[in-house]
Design a binder for these strands. Structure first.
Lengths: 277, 277
DNA sequence: CGCTACGTTGATCGCACTCAAGTATAGTGG
DNA sequence: CCACTATACTTGAGTGCGATCAACGTAGCG
């Protein structure tokens, strides 16, 4: 009844930056190893916008001259940690691109519970792609760290896509991939235990934001138990218990808002587990 | 802390076909009111392919002449209920469009549990949009009823999108919308009770496949308790209990593989419920 | 007309939520 | 620099929702 099962996503961590944190300075990780980008508000408005736009996956195909023209279409904004970029229910007519920092994408429930759908890093887009009807944002975007975002009117962006079909195809690819990833989350929420889900999320974050340190792979972002809980559909307390357990088993090393993965293979076992005891 | 909350999707049922089932014939719904399309295998290969292609949302913009050329690029296949169209893990290089019938999109878990991600109806696409790397299907597509599908090589489809930017944009719109819908499912799985999720799924199916009958809105498809369970991340038994309960409360009328919604407002209350007792 | 798949209902169990109290960390201001 | 406070994290005890196991009805098909 059940055929081939397997994750499609590449599983390597070879792309990770190797930033050997000096052992002498923090051998025991007493303080956050996560780099807290101090924001000079200037850092955002500088005209390295061009270089940022070039790094955005879907513009990398464009000729330089075009990127220069394109640059004028964008405006940039800075946000402090926790600040909302837009709220669910607001009228949606703007597309954003993360220039620096991290952005949380979340949905609210009547119960007051928030669900964290995704954490975006530089180069990722969010906001409104579509101009259909007078759409509203279904989710809320919130600055997770200090961020700088570039924005463009959806309308203008679509004109641009019409002009450059290859760009449109790249945007489609990214969106299709996100759909796949979200469907995998649905599967996990439907079929896996909390323990498995948390292991899986840690691995995914490590792949996305991991940085090799002497201890293992540091997830380079402030990550609270509550963030983890909101990503895996559980509670802060349960997330905390699971992380404590992982720590006892030597799979992770964690402190206040930071996690280092010290046993990737072990976590992978748990995340995949068919519970063959 | 929690701002505007609201569903974005249109909530009307005005588009539903009104097919008054003769009261005399089945006043008590002893047999399935769902139309079981008997498949003459010929029904698929007829050259109403053209008219089908025109109905596909993303080709409707194209000039007739183009559709005719396009027609040659497609091949058609028929499948019996339960037959797989492709399996997860297989190499992915084909894009499909449902011509008639319904197709299940599902993911398998190690535990043996299957998760039903979506049910596609005529005009919906599925399969591989992207040619990145030698991708594998992350999900399985299975004929739910007798179906006819049109298929095209992903490569050819992409060439086509390059040629007709408006088509590419429409495909992007559809994909973006599916992403939104899937994210809403993630939210429900994370934050809502099984009862709420089932109510929500029934309403969504009614909106998608509903047909107005004398009793209420008939969900025009074979729909077992197990299907419902796989769509809401629960078990057959629990799904059955909830439907029984809904039936006692007069919200639905149901039999073997069919459901009529008799109390839409009540279901909406439950699906939205902030549990204000 | 019997077989098979679907559906129902009951009893029991366990994972994860809830409520609650306590500890540790990192910023803050004196 | 250190007390002070806010926020994050931890851990325990009790509970309940929904899964599991099991047995039995029922529709539809060959």
């Amino acid at each position: 009844m059940s055929p081939n099962i397997g994750t499609v996503w590449s599983d390597s961590i070879e792309h990770l930056t190797e930033k050997q944190t000096s052992v002498t300075a923090m051998s025991q990780h007493r303080k956050t190893p996560v780099q807290v980008e101090t924001v000079e508000p200037a850092a955002c408005s500088v005209d390295l916008r061009l270089s940022i736009l070039q790094k955005v996956p879907f513009f990398s195909d464009l000729p330089d001259a075009e990127i220069r023209t394109l640059n004028d279409q964008f405006r940039e904004y800075g946000f402090q940690p926790g600040e909302p970029i837009y709220f669910s229910g607001e009228k949606a007519a703007t597309l954003y691109v993360v220039a620096s920092g991290q952005v949380k994408l979340l949905r609210h429930s009547m119960s007051g519970q928030d669900v964290l759908l995704d954490i975006l890093k530089p180069g990722d887009y969010f906001g409104s792609l579509t101009t259909l009807a007078d759409e509203l944002y279904p989710d809320t975007a919130q600055a997770h760290t200090a961020v700088c975002v570039l924005s463009i009117q959806t309308e203008a962006f679509r004109t641009l896509l019409q002009q450059y079909p290859p760009v449109a195809l790249t945007v489609l690819d990214i969106t299709a991939r996100r759909l796949q990833e979200t469907q995998e989350i649905v599967r996990r929420l439907s079929a896996d235990s909390v323990e498995q889900r948390i292991a899986a999320v840690l691995l995914k974050l490590a792949q996305k934001l991991g940085e090799i340190s002497d201890e293992g792979i540091l997830i380079q972002m402030p990550l609270s138990r509550d963030d983890l809980a909101q990503m895996t559909g559980t509670t802060t307390e349960t997330a905390s218990r699971i992380i404590s357990q992982f720590q006892k088993e030597g799979l992770v090393h964690s402190g206040r808002k930071w996690i280092v993965i010290t046993g990737r293979p072990g976590l992978k076992m748990i995340a995949a587990a068919a519970d063959t005891v």
